[in-house]
Design a protein around this nucleic acid. Sequence first.
DNA 1: CTGCAAAAATGACCATGGTCAATTTACATA
DNA 2: TATGTAAATTGACCATGGTCATTTTTGCAG
Lengths: 195, 195
Amino acid sequence: MTRPPQKRRVETRARLLAEASRLIEAQGYAGLRVEDVVEAAGVAKGTLFAHFRDKDGLLAVLIGVEVMHLIDGMETATPPQDLPQLMERLEPLLDFVASDRVIFDLLLRYSGSTGAERDEVVAEGFYRQIDLWAGWIAGMQAAGTVRGDHPPALLAEGIQAFLNQVIAIRFCQGEQATGTPAEALYPFLAAWLVT
Amino acid sequence: MTRPPQKRRVETRARLLAEASRLIEAQGYAGLRVEDVVEAAGVAKGTLFAHFRDKDGLLAVLIGVEVMHLIDGMETATPPQDLPQLMERLEPLLDFVASDRVIFDLLLRYSGSTGAERDEVVAEGFYRQIDLWAGWIAGMQAAGTVRGDHPPALLAEGIQAFLNQVIAIRFCQGEQATGTPAEALYPFLAAWLVT
DNA sequence: CTGCAAAAATGACCATGGTCAATTTACATA
DNA sequence: TATGTAAATTGACCATGGTCATTTTTGCAG
């Protein structure tokens, strides 16, 4: 018999998330310090770890929310009819993940994790995204603009793979990265989705 | 005018690497502590950081060496003629990278980095590997066992992408991962390399 | 209202990676 | 061999994420 959380707990959690979000907006993900978050939220350090498994657990919630919004946006838009339209739909997510190394690392670590106890926002977003893309692909297969010789789910996971690849290489290249992530992604998707 | 390193420096570096390697063999990558390494090597903590940028820098050298050996093995073997043979050639590398989360994370972080000052072993291995694969692919394209409508370099990078994807998902799944990495990789490569 | 058990929060404490001014050692040159 | 300088090393110190026994608060039963 697990009781529902007390009002105080809910408020504290909300304050921690809100202050963390504010600090990140001001100084980026990389600069976020646990000490700063708890001070801003007016709680002791131990409290943060009573609400989140670790610092990454907190970040996962914040990033998960962003990803969910981006997926909402993708779901709302009309399904793409061909590769250029697919690229358009993917671009916001691509830019978000490519915007900060911390985001990328965290998504790569948690995505697909069957978050038994882990904050599940990220894993949930991951599956939503794959399902959504698979649906798009099924439509494009029907329209004949995408290869039909493999199941949509496989092709959708492949999109994920190329997305990660392109972004990983960008971060490794550091400053000397050239062009947009989308430009780097295009040739891979063209080869992957069209025969 | 930069002088060559003194004998003492070379020896110290070798001792640090040897002891770290020994400790890793005993307790795995994740359990390696800087304190233990310097104690075993009989040097002060600061010395380690005078030889390697950070803990990951040391790990990169050790892992880079392993990767180089694996690439040596791939180079020595006869080039694959078709997809099943390609899988066979890739398997040792796949298993190595999948064997430890620390290895995977580090390779993903450093691979492709133009290691201006960074220990370059990993980046170098990355390019060697892509070049090698591209060569294989060119051969298979000529033999007609792999699609010829895209440049070998692109297809080679795609192999890398799927390799990472498969392993990332395995680590996220944790204990409940099923089958071998190679089994998970096969359908992706089949779709990627054959039309 | 009171007592009490579970929930929530606390903060001193720990673990570990990393820094850097000070010290020691190696080696080229006179 | 004496000496000066650059290389190499040192270890006290710091930064920061994370722990846990203890204390405070909450809300319910009597």
